[in-house]
Design a protein around this nucleic acid. Structure first.
Lengths: 230, 230
DNA sequence: CTTGACACAGAACGTATGTTCGTGTATTAT
DNA sequence: ATAATACACGAACATACGTTCTGTGTCAAG
């Protein structure tokens, strides 16, 4: 009864075929909606005509640890690890300090193993969803940022950018001084003014002849105080 | 067939009877688990013997806007508004400034209308779940907290407490000075030392004879930089 | 070439599931 | 007092659902 041999899936080793992915996508989609699918609905979504074949794949996905099932209930299938829709995990790329260059986001390297160091931030605190992917976080090391009202141990969240507008707080790398700094950015006639957040402190001025690399715009600062074990 | 008249639910107006609540609780519980219940399972959970009665209540809950159903699928029932399990909404009680007393959490008043001003924080950034209820947030007004490395517009998250340990950052009200301040707290022999977070600034000392009210312990500071509309 | 593992189809079976209908009993309105 | 309404039970029914069994085509190893 099988005629179209070209449509059969081949799984040389233990990988994900197109069918595995289609099924996973559908289950995740339905899980997000709150209504988990039946075997037959999965079959329809993945172009599988037989319920036994769906069961066959579900068994594999379970063994891979991608889904969980409860045989006691119908439609009791759910993905094991689903990132929360209400959170966004911002990768922490590394430390930031006055005498160090700023780690730059690398779209390739970031998602190795999917188990990256990161901060979870509520979507409600973030700008639009689309731009969240441009965000990265840095761990502040040392007291060198106190003029930016940022302390040792703080986490700064930046939006990757190479330009800045007046009034933005930016992460700047000054090659000639071998210095990283976080300042409010103002473009003046012949120079840039880098203004500390702390109003009691003086700005520094960078002539336009001097190189100045803007690495990102600070969008948030999170400070966790060590909770002395209650 | 009905003998126990005392067990019948009476809904004088449009309120929630015990059965409504039992059903809602069960649906929410199952929704969180990812496996929505069937009509009969709901009936079992709410001690309802007839499936038609469950349907009857489900219809009411739908009309109240508490749940949603999709008649195309079985087990397709979900609560409409479920607070995310990954977030915790910390109520913002009001402003904090140097010359103002600190708003104190009032367990009664907080939950009016359930639509309170608040910050959503990822649970992963918070201490244990149990203690999250003791948290409240304040909106920093003015520059008076710059010695605590806290700026105008910052949000400070505090844990309600009346005592402090050495090294805690606390919100303190000094009645004799009519002053609110955020400082690291150290108990010394004859006095308290209130140390600014900014290492370049000097501590203030409070003799033990002077009254000092600890209102809370700072657990987190969140600073949102205004994103100049991209 | 044979064998066995893999990928798939189809059908059958027993149970689960949601709806609907008929009936009964309190409570409230007229 | 009577009617209307709200709350509740149980049964019946058609369909949905998951499991299991048989069988078939594909491919690589021996």
């Amino acid at each position: 009864m099988l005629e179209r041999k070209d449509q059969m899936m081949v799984r040389t080793k233990k990988g994900m075929t197109l069918r595995h992915q289609k099924i996973m996508d559908f289950i995740v989609q339905r899980f997000d909606a709150g209504f988990p699918p039946s075997i037959r609905e999965i079959g329809e979504a993945a172009d599988i005509s037989s319920t036994s074949v769906v069961t066959y794949y579900l068994k594999q996905l379970t063994e891979m640890g991608l889904i969980e099932r409860d045989p006691k209930f119908s439609r009791a299938v759910r993905p094991t690890h689903v990132p929360s829709k209400d959170l966004y995990r911002i990768p922490i790329l590394g430390p930031i300090a006055a005498g160090m260059p700023i780690p730059v986001p690398d779209p390739q390297a970031v998602y190795i193993g999917d188990e990256i160091n990161g901060v979870d931030v509520a979507r409600s605190l973030l700008p639009e969803r689309e731009k969240a992917r441009e965000l990265f976080a840095l761990n502040v090391q040392g007291d060198s940022m106190i003029d930016a009202m940022i302390n040792d141990g703080d986490i700064v969240i930046l939006k990757s950018t190479f330009e800045a507008r007046n009034g933005d707080m930016v992460a700047v790398w000054l090659p000639e001084r071998n210095e990283t700094t976080l300042k409010f950015f103002y473009k003046e006639k012949e120079r840039y003014r880098l203004q500390p957040a702390n109003p009691t402190m003086k700005p520094i001025f960078i002539e336009k002849s001097e190189p100045l690399e803007i690495k990102g715009k600070v969008v948030m600062v999170i400070r966790k105080l060590q909770t002395t074990a209650a």
